[in-house]
Design a protein around this nucleic acid. Sequence first.
DNA 1: ACCTTTTCCGTTAACGTTAACAGGTTTTGC
DNA 2: GCAAAACCTGTTAACGTTAACGGAAAAGGT
Lengths: 353, 353
Amino acid sequence: MRRSTPKKKHATLADIAASAGVTPMTVSRVVNGNGYVSAETREKVLHAVSAMNYRRNGLARGLKRQRTDTIGLVLGDIANPFAAELARAVREVMLGRGYNVFICVSEHSAREDIAAFESLADHRVDGVIVATRANKLGNDRLAEMIEGGIPVVLIGRDFRHPNADLIAADNLRGGYDATTHLIALGHKNIGFIGVTPTSGVGLRRYHGYLEAMREHGLKVDERHIVGRADDGDQWPGYSTETMGYEGMKKLLALRKRPTAVFARNDFTAVGAMSAAKEAGLKIPQDVAIVGYDDVPLAAHTTPPLTTVRQPTREQGQIASEALLRRMESAETPAREERVMPCELVVRGSTLAE
Amino acid sequence: MRRSTPKKKHATLADIAASAGVTPMTVSRVVNGNGYVSAETREKVLHAVSAMNYRRNGLARGLKRQRTDTIGLVLGDIANPFAAELARAVREVMLGRGYNVFICVSEHSAREDIAAFESLADHRVDGVIVATRANKLGNDRLAEMIEGGIPVVLIGRDFRHPNADLIAADNLRGGYDATTHLIALGHKNIGFIGVTPTSGVGLRRYHGYLEAMREHGLKVDERHIVGRADDGDQWPGYSTETMGYEGMKKLLALRKRPTAVFARNDFTAVGAMSAAKEAGLKIPQDVAIVGYDDVPLAAHTTPPLTTVRQPTREQGQIASEALLRRMESAETPAREERVMPCELVVRGSTLAE
DNA sequence: ACCTTTTCCGTTAACGTTAACAGGTTTTGC
DNA sequence: GCAAAACCTGTTAACGTTAACGGAAAAGGT
């Protein structure tokens, strides 16, 4: 029979100091490895430290030092391989420079976006990388934070501020290239799956598509553009296979079907492929499909998915370095804006062998 | 031309107090909404607060209050939809109860596991949910943490401690059911893709497979078991489509091929399907394939993937509630261990229509 | 031998917040 | 009308740490 035991309290510097017969300051010097401490004293202290299972209190330490050696990373959809890869890259750079990374997730809603910013700001992280989609309220709060002096770097968020750097992939060009690829293959009726009105401005990929169509003198049929009408506070995350599936079904129900489809991302594209195959269509003969992001899965669909690769790792690295610059220089440095090129990856879903 | 501007400092309670002509304590009462403050004073204070862009210092607050209203969630592979869904569920419960959630990622290496624990412990989170795979060093450090008094709940981590709850899916039974399903369909030569020696004990799914085979008097051909020999410090995350692809190729190269394959998870299964199709095999006629996890994608492969669904959301919720219990009761409660049932989801990759 | 440098460790005073207490004033209850 | 309750604000003393400084002993240089 187990019975409840009373809670323990953490040992403090003073506890260790008392136990080792020195002052707290000496213990502090030992655990932080700075200042002069004799080998003998160090030994005594370390002994007490491990005997009492001491861990320094980061709150007190942070309060005193006015820095926490911690940065925040705000991600939207955590299930997206893009976000995962970004997190990996950021973590790698930051850990190497002695910073911990705390991730906050806001499933693309303004309220949660703000909650994430505030909780990071409250915990006095030394800097924040924001990779969520733009929204009015979130942008306002973000601006306050930046003006409050917290170093901020944005990744792919359509929001500009003189004291925040912006790193983004060239989604406009990527969308343009993907569409141009389809046009070059002879397609004239090209659909787009996955416009979301709320993030209208942010959907550069869609604008790239429109631009390519216009530039090649092709008419865009309104009915060939599908998306979710109202996704106000929803997460559009990895469940978008379903979104792509349903979008494709809508397109296939039309009298005049598109012969090619550009999907806003790979998941949507996979869903679209699934719907097309279900309808008995051959890919790419009956309908060609292009995705975006080049998730690992894309190489393993049947047929393998043509897609646009964005330099995820590089974006994370560049953002991290920009943040380090902001955090570690005494003056706030001049703003940096980087747009990274994307690369079309042609596979079987557009080009039969 | 932009020039660098000197850094700002955060306003403190004292600054606001001075500006509003009151004491810091009064400001504290206003910003926290407790204690009595006259409407008039509150007005003055709030005015100063927004004028000076004040945010309370969570470090000082946490230090004084001896709690941070924050919990940590340690995830292994962030790209895995399972982890993402788990995070979502945990966040939902915790936000509703007034806690922030910080996520730490450790890509399945002991060193990073430990780093995550320590950084969370240092920041004095009120509790931690750990959902990474077990490893010796990490377990030891975790035990210290638990004994140091931090409330800890484990999800699917094969590690037991009298002061930490354990929530897990019944992977043994799930593996057993998946294999039994294949056996019931008449398969006798069933392969398994994705054993990793390092996590040998943890791979309950594999043991379920072995058990089902044994119980039905089927011999397990050593060569039908594939996995990565040495993944010491690697991430086995979402890139495992490749792992499944390569595993399947090995199986297909054998003289005596298995007629069915059970893959450790859906990504591995997708890779396996890709390899099988490339070899000109029909699924499920020539080879049947079962995955595990029921990721959203599984319903959209061709053919749709038979898989085992684990109650992800429920695991997150139950773990959260267990943690809340540990955090909010004065005594440390008795240990709880929950094993959640999994559910076989039969689709086209094993059963032709 | 004497001065400088290095080593070692203690003291003091914050960092920004809030719990606890205390002292007033106003309202309420009967 | 008067005690009790509710209201409003201030004072004090931590929470656990470390920067800055100071003093004394040991080591090093000439």
